[in-house]
Design a protein around this nucleic acid. Structure first.
Length: 482
RNA sequence: GGCGCCGUACCCAAGUGGAAAGGGAGAGGUCUGCAAAACCUUUAUGCGACGGUUCGAAUCCGCCCGGCGCCUCCA
């Protein structure tokens, strides 16, 4: 069983073979930190999180780099989006960057995303970026005009190999572009001269200025991962021009292939339309988390394939929530039963075949990280587990542990949707749980004496406090309602 | 206009040549004092439309309809 990955560069699924066996270098385009993350960021980084987790599960040592863009990108009107936001808030741009970076990690942590090994800031790598621009100039791939440096796209004959685009001759000479400093409309900035009033700028051989839109990813990825590395990921919307330009810059400097596998995740839509900051139709993660548990959002994201679009709607999220809670109920019941088996020292019992579930799960993940298919396998395991737990025959401690390990490995360690701890009545012998236990005892007495109104009242009142009671065959359990 | 993607049940969503996964919602049932949970049964002779290739197509080819993305910053 080998892992196959869809490579945007070749437009087909390829067998994954890292450059150095057992070691994987991976770079994913991170956020531009000028406003809170939205569901789209969630989908992107959850998808890549599962990819990293799975590569590690397979035994690879993964070095995962994800940049923080705190220099900003130019808008149509020539204004930097970080500067624009800082003017709105009347604070230094770096304050915005710092605040949003913290907010970003906060959201990602809640989604259960394992942090990247290195989160390099663009502003902290100006020297490396200047160095690259110097080399591009020296090799004749770039030209300087009036304090700015541009990449000469015509000099790089492989330009367009990622996005399948060809340079359009017809665009040349149009009136708008003829006023530009660029020799060719497709040329892009490597270094921009800072106009007066531009707050963020650094000294360079070409005067005060700031790095271009694409150079940071080339400079930082190669700094930490080498001139050729295994995986570069990002949103589909970054395929062109961003990633195309990264290839052009990097390969022009090194003369070597930049990246072996390009992975692009698809976008989130809202009512069928792309969600983006510039559309203003985006739902921030913080907003979503008010209504839905972050892990429900993660579950929802993983219910569709990373290369498919995901349409965000309340109806779909609510469906995901119910499904997710059902899964957690299975885990909760399983762990309750395990604790009981342990206290009974139950060594004998029935069992069923777990290996088939593992095999099918792995097959799904090996086929270009098919998480939704893998989740289907988890649900089938959940059903068989429930059947066994409901059966008259008991399961042994050992087998219950095996099931728990299977869920923890596949659903926990790889997919990140099953937490290690789930609230049960055993979580802490605090005063609260002792009080609830007293209520359960009183209610038990009421039930025995068939004083139904009292039994129902206790259950109803506790429910209102978010404590749900469930009467099982051999007693009452409680847990917090999500 | 150029390049590309998608259209599977009421909703979400796998499946890319050989008996239509999975989740939600709905219906019926088992269990239960009642709930809840769980389990069982059920819900697309059908995969946007029409042609074609094939013993066989959701899956390949053609055409048409509908939706979306990139080409300008974006995950």
């Amino acid at each position: 069983m080998a892992l196959f990955i869809y490579n945007t560069l070749t437009r087909q699924k390829e067998k994954f073979k890292p450059i150095h066996e057992g070691l994987v270098g991976m770079y994913v385009c991170g956020p531009t930190v000028y406003s809170d993350s939205h569901i789209g960021h969630g989908k992107s980084y959850v998808s890549f999180d599962v990819i990293v987790r799975y590569l590690r599960y397979l035994g690879n040592k993964v070095l995962y780099i994800q940049n923080i863009t705190d220099v900003g990108h130019l808008l149509d009107d020539g204004e930097d989006r970080m500067l624009k936001q800082s003017k709105i808030e009347k604070v230094h741009p770096m304050q915005i960057a710092e605040k949003i970076t913290r907010s970003y990690f906060e959201d990602m942590d809640k989604l259960g995303i394992v942090r990247p090994d290195i989160s390099p800031r663009a502003s902290g790598h100006i020297i490396e970026q200047i160095e690259m621009v110097k080399q591009l100039l020296a090799k004749g791939f770039a030209y300087e005009v009036n304090g700015s440096v541009y990449y000469d796209v015509q000099k790089f004959n492989k330009y367009g190999k990622l996005s399948g685009r060809v340079l359009d001759e017809a665009v040349e000479g149009t009136r708008v572009e003829s006023r530009s400093e660029k020799r060719n409309p497709a040329d892009f900035a490597l270094w921009k001269k800072a106009e007066s009033g531009h707050i963020m700028h650094w000294p360079s051989p070409w005067g005060e200025g700031f790095p271009g839109w694409h150079i940071e990813c080339s400079a930082m990825s190669m700094k930490y991962l080498g001139e050729t590395f295994d995986i570069h990921g990002g949103g589909m919307d970054n395929q062109f021009p961003h990633h195309e330009c990264e290839i052009a810059q990097s390969e022009a400097v090194t003369g070597k292939p930049f990246v072996k596998y390009w992975i692009h995740n698809n976008l989130v839509t809202v009512d069928g339309k792309k969600m983006s900051k510039s559309f203003g139709n985006f739902v921030t993660l913080k907003d979503a988390f008010i209504k839905y548990d972050p892990l429900v959002v993660r579950f929802f994201i993983l219910q569709s394939h990373y290369r498919s679009t995901l349409d965000f709607s309340d109806e779909a999220l609510q469906g995901a929530r119910t499904g997710y809670e059902k899964l957690l109920t299975t885990i909760r019941n399983l762990r309750e039963e395990l604790q009981k088996a342990e206290s009974e020292k139950r060594n004998e019992g029935i069992s069923f075949d777990l290996s088939l579930y593992k095999k099918r799960f792995m097959e799904a993940m090996n086929d270009d990280f098919n998480a939704p298919l893998a989740m289907g396998v988890i649900f089938e395991l959940s059903r068989e587990t429930n059947q066994a737990l409901n059966s008259e025959q008991k399961l042994s401690i050992d087998f219950l542990r095996q099931i728990d390990m299977c869920f923890s490995e596949l659903g926990g360690r790889i997919l990140g949707i099953i937490p290690e701890q789930i609230s049960t009545k055993k979580d802490g012998e605090n005063i609260e749980s002792q009080l609830i236990d007293i209520h359960i005892k009183v209610r038990q007495q009421a039930k025995q004496e068939k004083v139904w109104w009292a039994a129902d009242l206790i259950r109803k009142e506790l429910e209102a406090l978010g404590i749900r009671l469930e009467d099982k065959k051999d007693g009452t359990i409680w847990h917090r309602a999500k």
